[in-house]
Amino acid sequence: MSRMRRRLIRTWALTVAAWLFVLAVSFPLIWMLASSFKSPTEITAVPPRLLPDALYLGNYEALFAGDFWRWFMNSIIVASGTVVIVIVLGTLGAYSLTRFSYPGQKATSTAILFTYLFPSVLMLVPLFLIIVELRIMNTYWALILADMTFAMPFSLWLLRSYFLSVPLQVEEAAMVDGASRFACFFQIVLPQVMPGIISTGIFAFILAWDDYLFASVFTTTAEMKTLPVGIARYANELNAEWGILMAASVSVTVPVLVLFAFLQRRLLPDLNAGAVKA
């Protein structure tokens, strides 16, 4: 009996400790959300209060009336463009690396891993020169090109492991039955790795969405800024309003959270389960 009691006390002590910690870690986010709904007077009130008196929407109205949607679209275009290019290339590459055998394959895989760990800032100067020479400074292409430097090795590495984790019995059977490699790829391999492709695409999208370094150097005008650059520049303005900044922070975070939530659900179902049973 006392043993059970001890266990009960232990569980509750752990519950309290864990949740106190979680609350402490989440506090900046709670504060961000609360501040975004505070009026300018409440924001600078001394002493500050955690929750606003009334839900003040003025920050969001001011934010959405400004350049927000322009920057939002820029971010969407750059991230989507990067993802499309990187996924097409990555799928081809991963298929080649995992379903064929030829010399230099292992070296290629190691090289991909190496570049995946490679720091973006070292590419900054040469990319700048190339972008100037290609005359694509301050265009979407400049940002897509730059984002490819980290998104491509990342996607290829991830896709390669997804391709490796798909069992090959079905493919083998189809090949024995005389299916062409073309048909095999589109009708058997692609449907099986589709969850992996979608997850990789989402990860790559989030990476590109988050880019600040390249976007801050390779865009020069206000209308080409992406969201991270737009927000960072606004934060440095002398008359920047914290309420609007917090509203902007919430608005940039929401799409990322939606994608992660989607990712979590997407990763669960195992499409192979049925196919391999036979």
Partner: peptide, 28 residues
């Protein structure tokens, strides 16, 4: 402990934030 699944998701939350959001919030 109680509410473990939710606590786990909340604890990894800062890592999911865009970098510009994390820095702006801390500046505030």
């Amino acid at each position: 402990f109680h509410g473990r699944a939710l606590a786990r998701s909340l604890a990894i939350f800062p890592y999911l934030l865009p970098i510009v959001v994390a820095t702006t919030v801390w500046k505030w």
